[in-house]
C-alpha cells in the first residue's frame, strides 16, 4: 500500500502554514501526527495534492496550567499527555483518554490537535473534550478565534475550522473543587477504536450534581454529548437508581449503527452500562479517589 504523489511543504510558522492553506485550498491537507492520515493515504482513501507538514512549527507542543485553563498545544503528542503529571493529577479523564488511544508507539507521533481536527467520531478525544467543555483556539488569516467545543464538531469528519485555519491550542477549563471525571472505553482489543466510549466530567456541590457533561465516542456520526442524560442529573442527589436512569437516557439519545463492533442494540446497551460506570468513577474522583 503506497500513497499517491503529493507536493510537500514544511512551514516553520503558523502564518506560513495558513498562507499555504489559503493558497491551495481544498487540495491541501495538514499533516500533524499523521497516524490516521498516512494509513488513509496508503489505501488511497485520501489523496491530497498538497501536504502541509506542521511539525516544523515551533511552540505548539506543551501542556501547561494557568489560573483558568489547562492549555495544550495542538501538536502535543498523546504520549506526552499520557505521561504529564499535571494531567494525571488534575485532569484524570484526559489521562484516561490519552492512554487508550491506539497503542504506545502511535501515541508517540499522534497529536491531540490531529485527533480533534480529524473529527472522526471513533476518535477518543472528542468525547472527552466535549465533556470538559473545552475551547478550541484556531488561527486563520484574520488572526485567532476561540471556538466553544459545542460548536466545533459539525458533521462526520467535519469541524467548524475554516479551510485556511489551523487548530493551535486546546483550552480545558480548570475544574473547580468537587470535580471529577472519567473516560471509559470498551474495545475489542487494545488499540482498537471504541465499541463505545463514555466521558463524564462533573462537579459536586453540597452533595448534589452541580454540573455534569457527558461525551460519547463512536455512537453517532458526529461526536456528541448525552445532553438528556446530563439534564436528568443536574441538581440531583447521586444514587444508583439515578445513574441507571441516566444510562438509559444516554442509550436512547445516541445513534449507533451496526458493524463488526456490534449491533445497534448492543452498543446502546453498552452506552447505558458504561455511562453508569463512568459516573460512579467520576464521583469517586470528585471525592478525591484517583
Amino acid at each position: 500500500m503506497i500513497p499517491g504523489k503529493f507536493e510537500y511543504f514544511a512551514p516553520t510558522s503558523v502564518s506560513e502554514a495558513i498562507g499555504l492553506l489559503g493558497q491551495y485550498g481544498s487540495e491541501a491537507k495538514i499533516l500533524a501526527g499523521g497516524q490516521s492520515l498516512i494509513p488513509a493515504m496508503r489505501f488511497r482513501l485520501a489523496q491530497p495534492e498538497i501536504l502541509v507538514d506542521i511539525n516544523r512549527i515551533q511552540g505548539l507542543e506543551y501542556v501547561r496550567e494557568t489560573d483558568d485553563y489547562l492549555e495544550i498545544g495542538a501538536l502535543t503528542r498523546e504520549s506526552a499527555i499520557e505521561k504529564s503529571t499535571i494531567v494525571q493529577q488534575r485532569y484524570p479523564m484526559l489521562a484516561d483518554t490519552a492512554r487508550v488511544i491506539a497503542d504506545p508507539l502511535v501515541r508517540n507521533m499522534a497529536t491531540i490537535g490531529g485527533n480533534l481536527a480529524h473529527a472522526d467520531p471513533a476518535n477518543d478525544h472528542p468525547a472527552t473534550i466535549l465533556a470538559y467543555n473545552a475551547r478550541i483556539v484556531a488561527e486563520g488569516p484574520g488572526g485567532e478565534r476561540i471556538i466553544p467545543v459545542d460548536d466545533f464538531f459539525i458533521g462526520i469528519f467535519e469541524t467548524s475550522l475554516e479551510r485556511d485555519e489551523i487548530l493551535k491550542e486546546i483550552l480545558i477549563p480548570s475544574p473547580p473543587g468537587g470535580s471529577g471525571g472519567a473516560y471509559l472505553k470498551i474495545e475489542r482489543k487494545v488499540g482498537d477504536y471504541a465499541v463505545v466510549g463514555v466521558a463524564v466530567q462533573l462537579t459536586m456541590e453540597d452533595g448534589l450534581f452541580k454540573s455534569i457533561r457527558i461525551g460519547l465516542t463512536n455512537v453517532s456520526s458526529t461526536p456528541m454529548r448525552a445532553r438528556a442524560a446530563e439534564a436528568l442529573l443536574v441538581g440531583q442527589t447521586p444514587e444508583e437508581a439515578l445513574f441507571d436512569k441516566a444510562g438509559r437516557v444516554a442509550a436512547a439519545e445516541c445513534e449507533p449503527w451496526a458493524d463488526l463492533r456490534g449491533s445497534e442494540e448492543y452498543k446502546r446497551d453498552l452506552v447505558r452500562v458504561v455511562t453508569k460506570r463512568a459516573i460512579r468513577k467520576a464521583i469517586e474522583r470528585a471525592n478525591g479517589v484517583l
Partner: peptide
Amino acid sequence: TIIMDGKAVKSCTIFAVQAE
C-alpha cells in the same frame, strides 16, 4: 518500529521527508 529522537515510532506511518 525504530527509535526517532529517543522515541519508538512506527516507520511505516512517517514520510522520510518528516525525518529531516
